[in-house]
Design a protein around this nucleic acid. Structure first.
Length: 394
DNA sequence: CGTCTTTGACCTGCGC
DNA sequence: GCGCAGGTCAAAGACG
C-alpha cells in the first residue's frame, strides 16, 4: 500500500475509496468485507475537522465574550447547538473508525489465510507435476463458450473464441485462445479445481448512484459495450453485462447490478484485465473525471475505440485513471517486480504514489459531493459558521 | 447507413 | 436425465 495512504489515519483507504488497494486475487474477499454504506459516510471525515477546530476555539474564548456582548447569547446558543452536533458527529466518527478498524483486522486475517491457502495450493500443484505458472498467474483466461454445435468442430480452436480473437492474440498470456483447463485437464475433479483457479481476475467496485437512475452505467473511465441484461434470482434488479469496447483484443468484461440491500449502490464486477490503456477522455469526459458524459444516453457507456489497443506496459497511467485501475495496475507492477525479484523503482514508485494521491483526492471529492449526508453536515457546519461570522446576526 | 441498445432465445454448467 | 439459473448471442429497433 502507498505509505502516504497508510499514514492517513482518518482516510482508511483500504475500505473507503473505490476498490480496496489489494491485489486482485484478494479483492473479492476485501469487497465482501467492505460495507459501501460505511465507505461513503466515512468519507465525510476530512471536512469534519474544520468545525471541530472551530468549536474548540469557541469553547475556549466563549466565556469571556459572553459577559460583555449581548449578541454573544445567540452565538453561544448556536455554539451550544454546534457543540451538540459536533459531539454527535464525533461519536459517529469514533464508531465508524472502530468499525473500520475491525473490518481492516478481519480483512487482514482473511487475506493472510487466503495467502496461506494459495501457497499451499501452489505447492500441491507443483508436487503433483502440474504447471503452477499456468494457473497461479490467475491469468485473464476468458471462459470461452463452447456451444454444442460449435464444440464438435474442434476442441483446440472453438469458433466462438476464434471469432472473438481473430488471428494470433497479441497478449496470449492475458487471453489465451485455449484455456489451460481445456488443454491440460483430462478428467473430473482436478480439472474442475484448476478451472476455478484459472478464472479471470475478478474485482468488484461499489459505486453510489441515484436510485432513480436506471442506466446501470458505472463511470470508470473505460468504454463498454453492453451485450446483455438479465434478471437474476437473488436480486430483483437486472444485471447488465458489458464488454470492453476494445474487444475482441481486450477480454475484460464487467457486470453491473444494483445491490439488493441498497439500490443506491451499483456493484460492478470486473473480470479480466485491460490489455490497453484508458482511452483518452473526450472534452465532456474530461469534465467528468474521465467518465462518460451522463447526458449522452445513447453513447454514454459506449464509444468507438479511439485508437488501437496498446500494450499495457507501454502506457503511462492516465491522470484520470480510476482508482480501480490504479490499484489494479499498481498491483500488477508490484507482482511483476516481485516475480522478478526486483525492488520497486524509487522514481516510478514516487510517480505512482503521486498518481494515487491525485486520484484519491478526486475520487473522494466526487464521493463526498454525491453524498447527501455529507452535504447536510457541510451545510449545517457552514451555516453555523456563517451565522457566527455574520456582522448582522442578532 | 453504421453503430449501439434492447431483449427474447439459446447454450452451458450444476444440482438433484 | 431434467430443470434451473447464469451468461451470451443475435435479430430488431433506435438513433445520429
Amino acid at each position: 500500500m502507498d505509505p502516504w495512504i497508510s499514514s492517513q489515519p482518518s482516510l482508511s483507504l483500504d475500505l473507503h475509496v473505490g476498490l480496496p488497494p489489494l491485489s486482485l486475487h484478494q479483492a473479492p474477499v476485501a469487497v465482501a468485507l467492505a460495507r459501501p454504506k460505511v465507505l461513503v459516510e466515512e468519507n465525510v471525515l476530512p471536512p469534519k475537522k474544520e468545525p471541530e477546530v472551530y468549536i474548540h476555539s469557541c469553547l475556549i474564548g466563549g466565556g469571556v465574550v459572553f459577559d460583555d456582548d449581548p449578541k454573544s447569547l445567540t452565538d453561544c446558543f448556536l455554539d451550544s447547538m454546534m457543540t451538540h452536533q459536533v459531539a454527535a458527529l464525533e461519536t459517529e466518527l469514533q464508531r465508524m473508525s472502530e468499525e473500520n478498524r475491525r473490518l481492516t483486522e478481519a480483512l487482514a486475517a482473511v487475506a493472510s489465510k487466503y495467502e496461506a491457502l494459495r501457497s499451499q495450493y501452489t505447492e500441491m500443484v507443483a508436487t503433483a507435476g502440474g504447471n503452477p505458472s499456468s494457473t497461479s498467474e490467475g491469468g485473464s483466461v476468458s471462459p470461452s463458450r463452447k456451444r454444442k454445435s460449435e464444440s464438435t468442430d474442434t476442441a483446440l480452436a472453438p469458433p466462438a473464441a476464434a471469432a472473438q480473437h481473430p488471428g494470433p492474440h497479441p497478449h496470449p498470456h492475458l487471453h489465451p485462445a485455449v484455456p489451460a483447463d481445456q488443454t491440460e485437464c483430462t478428467s473430473g475433479e482436478p480439472c474442475k479445481r484448476i478451472r476455478e483457479e484459472c478464472k479471470p481476475k475478478v474485482s468488484k467496485l461499489y459505486v453510489h448512484a441515484d436510485p432513480a437512475d436506471l442506466s446501470l452505467v458505472v463511470k470508470d473511465g473505460y468504454q463498454w459495450r453492453k451485450y446483455g441484461q438479465k434478471v437474476t434470482k437473488d436480486n430483483p434488479c437486472p444485471r447488465a453485462y458489458f464488454r470492453c469496447s476494445f474487444g475482441p483484443a481486450c477480454p475484460v468484461k464487467k457486470k453491473v447490478q444494483r445491490s439488493a440491500d441498497d439500490t443506491s449502490i451499483l456493484v460492478a464486477t470486473y473480470e479480466g484485465e485491460h490489455n490497453h490503456g484508458q482511452p483518452p477522455p473526450a472534452p465532456a469526459q474530461a469534465a467528468h473525471n474521465g467518465s462518460a458524459a451522463p447526458g449522452a444516453s445513447k453513447n454514454a457507456a459506449v464509444a468507438k475505440p479511439p485508437s488501437p489497443p496498446r500494450p499495457a506496459a507501454a502506457i503511462a497511467p492516465a491522470p484520470h485513471r480510476p482508482q480501480l485501475q490504479l490499484h489494479h495496475q499498481q498491483q500488477q507492477q508490484q507482482d511483476a517486480a516481485a516475480m522478478n525479484g526486483e525492488q520497486p523503482v524509487g522514481a516510478a514508485a514516487a510517480a505512482a504514489s503521486e498518481m494515487i494521491r491525485r486520484n484519491l483526492a478526486e475520487q473522494m471529492a466526487m464521493t463526498l459531493t454525491r453524498d447527501p449526508s455529507f452535504k447536510a453536515a457541510l451545510v449545517t457546519a457552514l451555516s453555523g459558521r456563517i451565522l457566527e461570522l455574520s456582522p448582522t446576526n442578532d
